[in-house]
């Protein structure tokens, strides 16, 4: 079902936390951002730690009032109508926050009761969700015995108990091993196919490229740019990237020699070029002798470094 009105509409959204003590200063985590999310989309917030992603997610979750600007979720005000908004959201927090003393099923049941589901409805729903999360044989197991990947899948299952229209995921695969991440991505992809709107934060570029139709890159509380992964790559970087490594301390010197299409990272140089091999030939001609050289296609990581690189080296 297509809708003209966006599911989420944020305009000039700000969040400032009060000072922790008398000596401290108030902290502005989100400094005025605009974005829209449409039904059925997978929308990502990408950015380094401290960029304001989690603060934005808390405002979207209806548990943190914006300091300034306006936010509409499902056409409602998440502060005045918090209850109604939260009834239609699913939230997957960064730290799982499952009850490790309770069983897998008990975690789901308790959460369903919070939403006002009857015990019978919640039991039936728990069965379906455990199957979806591939935890059907773990129903009676205590959560403390589950692996990190299983816990994360359980947290997602829990967030789906109320059949949410929007699922908020804060760094869904941080701390998981590669296999567990792929299982999780597969589950999220299925949800998207079922029409659930996904909103996630991540600092993994591959995750953003895999899952997001559209994303914003955040840095220091502001949106640096917005678009699909492909659009962002085309806008900010060239088709290919030549990665050059030098002995420690020589990066800056080489960068001065070859020009301004080069990004200097602590451990390597990134040379943006439409033809990486040609750039390498050019470098060799100029007398540059790297320890290693690698030509690859440009990725979202390059966009990320271009847009937020300076804060990374801080």
């Amino acid at each position: 079902m297509a809708r003209l009105n966006p599911l989420i509409l944020a305009t000039g959204l700000e969040k400032t936390y009060p000072a922790r003590d008398r000596k401290g200063a108030p902290f502005r985590a989100v400094a005025g951002v605009d974005f829209q999310v449409h039904r059925g989309e997978a929308f990502g917030f990408l950015g380094p730690n401290g960029a304001g992603k989690s603060s934005t997610m808390r405002m979207l979750g209806g548990v943190s009032a914006p300091t300034a600007g306006s936010l509409r979720i499902l056409g409602l005000d998440p502060v005045a109508d918090g209850r109604r908004v939260r009834a239609r959201l699913g939230v997957v927090p960064q730290d799982d926050s499952l009850d490790t003393q309770l069983t897998v099923e008990e975690n789901l049941v308790v959460y369903g009761l919070y939403f006002g589901l009857s015990r019978r409805a919640v039991k039936a729903r728990a069965g379906e969700l455990l199957e979806f999360a591939r935890l059907e044989d773990k129903a009676g197991e205590r959560v403390e015995h589950l692996s990190g990947g299983m816990r994360r899948r359980l947290t997602i299952a829990r967030a789906l108990i109320n059949e949410p229209e929007i699922l908020l995921l804060d760094e869904p695969t941080t701390g998981l091993d590669p296999q567990a991440r792929h299982v999780l991505w597969d589950r999220l992809f299925r949800l998207k196919q079922d029409g659930v709107t996904l909103i996630l934060t991540t600092h993994y570029m591959d995750e953003a490229e895999q899952l997001c139709d559209r994303l914003v890159v955040m840095d220091k509380g502001l949106i640096a740019d917005e678009g699909s992964p492909r659009e962002l790559i085309e806008r900010h970087v060239t088709r290919e990237v030549l990665e050059l490594r030098f002995p420690p301390g020589e990066n800056e010197e080489v960068a001065r020699k070859v020009g301004d299409h080069v990004e200097v990272l602590p451990d390597r140089l990134l040379w943006y070029a439409d033809d990486g091999e040609q750039a390498l030939a050019q470098a060799t001609e100029a007398g540059v002798r790297p320890l290693t050289a690698l030509v690859r296609r440009a990725s979202l990581e390059d966009v990320f470094l271009r847009l937020t690189g300076r804060s990374l080296t801080d």
Binding site: A87, D99, L113, R125, E163
Partner: peptide, 28 residues
């Protein structure tokens, strides 16, 4: 939708909401 009628149901009162929160502590 299995939950549709639940979602449109009139708002529960404060005490009913408090009992939902208490259910967790009982399970524990």
């Amino acid at each position: 939708m299995m939950l549709a009628d639940w979602r449109d149901a009139p708002r529960a009162g404060g005490l009913a909401m408090a009992f939902r929160a208490m259910a967790y502590w009982l399970v524990r």
